[in-house]
Simulated assay, not measured.
Amino acid sequence: MRAIQITEFGGPEVLNEVDLPDPVAGPGELLVDVSRAGLNYADTHQAENSYLSKMELPLVPGGEVVGTAGGRRVVGLTNFGGYAEKAVVPEATAFDVPEGVDDLTALSMVVQGATAWLLLRKSAHLEAGESVVVHAAAGGVGSLAVQLAKKWGAGRVIATASTEDKRQLALDLGADVAVDSTAENMTDVLREANGGRRVDIVLDMTGGAVTDQSIAALAPFGRLAFYGMASREQPTPVEPGRLLVHSTAIAGMWLPHAFRLPGGVVHRAMGELFDLVLAGELRAVPGGEYGLSEVRRAHEDLRARRTTGKLVLDPSR
């Protein structure tokens, strides 16, 4: 089968197209004929071995696929192996795709959609009327989080994005206001965007100064849900005593941990997300399709923050 393999860690240059034997599914696993694989910012960390779970070489990267397995159409998560014509997916992280949901939308829901759901429901515990800041609002998670926050009763959704086109997309998706993510002082920008008031919730995957300044913008009992570090810059360590100043909270969220929760939380999230899609109340934003031969360009685009919405990989070309 055609696949992308890396034999040394690094940037886009380490992604090489190769021919490999088909993988073999074991007990409790599905062998999926991949129609599309998801491209995520986390994949760039996987390629350089800076992700939360450490990788071993040689490695076929990619953590999400959609396709067919034994007559079923499924979308699923795999630790690695997604950038290929065939992939093995654990049954526990596979979801049947309802009729009427296309490949891109299915892939958008399984990582980005579930992440947005969990951030708002479990990490930030959104309550009706609260203000919600969505950083990188034109991205895969951000574009869905804007829509979900608005649907679930947020009083004011404040989007941040780096270009006018991205800010307009966030507004089109339901954000009440969109501000420049490259602003020098994000604390002042967020408070101004919220009518001079501190904000209740921030969804942050940036890191560095943006995280520091977002924490400083939180209202009493405000919450920052942290789920990535696209800037590759660590925020300033927060002493617990600083949280008392405004009774604020900081939560981290990594999707794999959600599968350990009792009650099938991720399956419940996926069911709700697919229902919203089928009802026309939630839409995925297409961000571009790449062939296997274009995977280096895809990673370059991701790292340069040139993308919006959901990116997918077509293993057939």
Rank of each mutant, 00 (worst) to 15 (best):
V14K: 09
A3V: 08
V238I: 15
R223F: 05
R268D: 15
N185L: 10
P220D: 13
L120T: 08
A284T: 09
V157L: 02
L255Y: 13
E300I: 12
M253G: 07
A284E: 07
V75A: 02
A137W: 05
L52P: 03
T211S: 11
A25E: 07
V34G: 08
G208M: 07
K122H: 15
H267E: 15
V134M: 01
E184N: 10
L15W: 03
A92S: 13
I4H: 01
K310G: 11
E91Y: 04
F9W: 04
P315Y: 07
P315E: 06
M109A: 14
D22W: 00
G11M: 10
I4R: 00
V179Y: 00
V134C: 02
A249L: 10
R167G: 01
Q147F: 06
E99T: 11
G207S: 08
S231R: 03
Y227N: 09
G62L: 05
A145W: 09
I215Q: 07
A175P: 01
L148P: 11
G195F: 09
R317I: 09
E272H: 14
S143N: 03
M270P: 01
D275K: 12
V177W: 04
L273M: 11
A178C: 04
L255M: 15
E127I: 02
S131F: 07
L57F: 11
H299D: 02
A154F: 05
S231E: 06
V141F: 07
A225R: 05
I215M: 13
L148Y: 13
P21F: 07
L144T: 03
S50D: 05
P21A: 07
V265M: 14
E192H: 12
R72Y: 08
D172E: 14
K151D: 14
D204V: 03
V110L: 06
D212A: 08
A145V: 06
D212R: 06
G81C: 08
V245S: 14
K166R: 15
G63S: 13
Q147D: 02
G207D: 09
P220T: 11
A161N: 03
G208N: 06
G208C: 08
V238E: 00
D204Q: 02
E272R: 14
V133H: 01
T206M: 11
N194R: 09
L104E: 12
G67V: 05
E239L: 13
D314P: 04
R297Q: 15
P61D: 04
E192Y: 04
P286Y: 12
D176E: 03
V32S: 00
G174Q: 07
P90A: 11
H246W: 12
L52V: 13
A225S: 15
V101D: 01
A304Q: 14
P256N: 05
R305N: 11
M55P: 00
D19H: 13
S231C: 12
G142H: 02
L118P: 09
H246N: 15
E300H: 09
L243P: 06
L59G: 11
S35A: 13
E164V: 15
G81W: 03
M270S: 05
V295L: 10
E17Y: 00
L59C: 12
E17A: 03
A149Q: 10
A217L: 10
A216C: 06
T307I: 12
E294N: 05
G140Q: 05
A136E: 10
A304V: 12
L169Y: 04
E294M: 00
T307V: 14
